[in-house]
């Protein structure tokens, strides 16, 4: 199964985790490991709860059963104070960037530093400029978020997410809606930052080639279960029908093209009669 990589030291351990929203089961007995220092891709079609998984790891949601451990802490059993402490070691890059719209680019990146540290203003300035330099936007520091393109605001959000040098950084659909150039920049940045800063990265995405090009290990999720896992090369060869359809982007297969509906002919004629 190509799981040898995983047996090494895991930063995040998910064990037999289930999560339900009302009667809808989002995750059903999921177990997975995020090894330290690696880039791990979590893939699956839209609506399979990939973002929910990030929220579970971030402690914004509680699993219905099972455990999620980060660095030995069971996230959902932590007190509020400890949870906030653990969260300082996590960066989350939101799908919508979620920049503070009333603050400049510079102040957005400085925000977590000001809140969590007692650093002097000149030290904060140096750190902010370093992070902005890393994402190539040092020159944009005085702009407001409304003046940034989609790709730029995502890079600012990335700079903000790494401001405190977290041990774990989670990317929620980082490639969605990006032009090829911004996409290339983001792909390079994610890998580069991971290796340079010694972080562990989780990339939640449905962009197969981009994720495959940077991930060390990939989990494929569907219907609340892990249906496939392995290195990108391994998954390319995987014969599991679902994994095959997803990785190769086949329009029809185990996942039907059509959302469940009554017979099309009946539907249209039925209205006429």
């Amino acid at each position: 199964m190509g799981t040898s990589l995983i047996k090494t030291d895991a930063l995040v351990k998910i064990r037999n985790m289930s999560f339900c929203r009302g009667k809808r089961v989002i995750f059903d007995d999921v177990s997975l490991d995020i090894p330290r220092g690696k880039v791990v891709g979590i893939m699956g079609p839209s609506g399979t709860g990939k973002t929910t998984l990030l929220r579970l790891i971030g402690g914004q949601l509680k699993p219905t059963s099972g455990t999620i451990e980060m660095d030995g802490n069971v996230i959902h059993r932590l007190s509020r104070r400890d949870l906030y402490k653990v969260r300082k070691n996590m960066g989350l890059l939101f799908q919508t960037s979620a920049l503070f719209t009333n603050l400049t680019v510079y102040e957005n990146v400085a925000f977590p530093l000001r809140e969590h540290t007692q650093l002097s203003e000149s030290m904060i300035r140096d750190l902010v400029l370093m992070k902005l330099q890393a994402v190539g936007l040092r020159g944009a520091r005085d702009l407001m978020p409304s003046h940034l393109s989609g790709g730029m605001s995502r890079r600012v959000a990335l700079a903000r997410a790494i401001a405190l040098d977290p041990t774990l950084i989670m990317y929620d659909e980082p490639f969605t809606g990006q032009d090829p150039i911004s996409m290339g920049i983001l792909v390079k940045l994610i890998r580069h930052l991971n290796d340079a800063l010694g972080m562990t990265s989780i990339v939640v995405s449905h962009d197969v080639p981009e994720t495959a090009s940077i991930a060390d290990y990939i989990y494929v999720i569907s219907g609340g279960k892990v249906v496939g896992q392995g290195t990108p090369e391994y998954l390319q060869q995987d014969e599991n029908p679902y994994v095959k359809q997803f990785i190769h982007g086949l329009p029809d297969g185990v996942v039907p093209f059509h959302y469940p509906a009554v017979d099309f002919g009946q539907d249209m004629l039925g209205e006429a009669s």
């Binding site: 906030y84 960066g91 939101f94 799908q95 979620a98």
Partner: peptide
């Protein structure tokens, strides 16, 4: 509006109340 823009979530994930 901050909630819609996920700014509130961003604060929470930074470990800020």
């Amino acid at each position: 509006t901050m909630k819609l823009n996920e700014e509130v979530d961003a604060m929470e994930t930074m470990g800020l109340s």
